[in-house]
Design a protein around this nucleic acid. Structure first.
Lengths: 188, 188
DNA sequence: TGATAAATGTATCGAGTCGATACTAATATT
DNA sequence: AATATTAGTATCGACTCGATACATTTATCA
């Protein structure tokens, strides 16, 4: 019932972080959305590094995302390669410059500063609370969860201790399973 | 240390809510920022209903906010009155139409739906966690807290059970003390 | 008191966002 | 082989938002 109070906090939090991101981004010639795209690319897996996946993640239209990507490519922060199998799709990755820039700006120093002041226990609670909220939000509204393999119903453990995705039918590396996947479906 | 994970959740949450707000707002001809201004005006007290207070709350520049307010006024959702004492300042308030519209869109049905699915206990935890985070964020970065009188160092209880603000030197009503104030300074 | 500074708000400009629409090209379907 | 679907691009227009410049009113202080 009291989602009003919840919304108050979320809205304020959003506005503060976005304003901060805008400020720090502009010093490097980047817009908030552009940073968000770079950030997503740094945490997604190799099946989820396409313009469409970015579109789904950010909840915008593909036209919008296409523009953003174009700009980032021109700035030399992002690399676009064609998929070898499907000529319609392209894969995006950060260039060393893009990666370096992202490290400077994300997570925002402002947030790190604040979170450092909180006791470790509180920090964990907040983190967990947010995660629950995100999941509830996505689930209630039929959106893609974009989780990691550990929590995905398609994830299988193979005998040798490795991982195997039952959707794409391929073995996954240790690095793979720690990244966000657009095909993720919560197990259960 | 692990503010990266925290940021992941926050960014995602922000993006989802903002996209949703944009979508629902556009159906009524309103932009996300405009809704945020209306929302703020619905929860601030009479000392904090000026363009400058909105500016501080949203973290934008006064020029930007001035434009937004102008549009909202033209749409008939917001009323601007001159202060009787200081001719530089104006006070903003929602018109009945603005108030009604806000009720429909804020908090976003999407969020209410999600929060209803969570157990009451979890809900409370999330709420508390967010509040702590907002406070830490504001405090670490020297921003105004915009809290309610109950938690303000200027708030005094008078003998008759009423409230008195030691900064503006005026009695406050029960309604006053439940609203956000731009002069708020956390007690302690 | 009179000059200067500070505060509140407005006007205008330009770079950029973002949804809508229309489009191309490649792959799937039937 | 014809059609539908999917991934992505191009273009347009309404809007955002910081920057700069400005007007007016109030505060400061010498």
């Amino acid at each position: 019932m009291n989602s009003g109070n919840l919304y108050n906090h979320l809205e304020r939090l959003s506005e503060i972080l976005r304003t901060d991101l805008r400020k720090s981004g502009i010093e490097h010639g980047l817009q908030p959305v552009q940073l968000e795209v770079l950030h997503y690319l740094s945490v997604c897996n190799r099946y989820s590094d396409t313009p469409l996946a970015v579109t789904e993640y950010l909840g915008q239209t593909k036209g919008t995302v296409s523009q953003t990507i174009k700009v980032l490519e021109q700035k030399g922060l992002l690399l676009k390669r064609n998929d070898t199998e499907d000529k319609r799709v392209s894969h995006l990755s950060l260039t060393p410059r893009g990666s370096k820039l992202l490290d400077q700006l994300v997570p925002p120093p402002m947030l790190t500063k604040a979170s450092d002041k909180l006791p470790e226990k509180t920090h964990k609670q907040i983190n967990q609370a947010l995660q629950q909220l995100v999941m509830a939000l996505l689930q209630s509204n039929g959106m893609k969860s974009f989780g990691v393999c550990h929590t995905c119903r398609y994830n299988m453990h193979s005998k040798d201790g490795g991982y195997f995705c039952n959707l794409v039918k391929q073995a996954l590396t240790v690095d793979d399973v720690e990244r966000l996947c657009r095909e993720h479906e919560t197990a259960g």
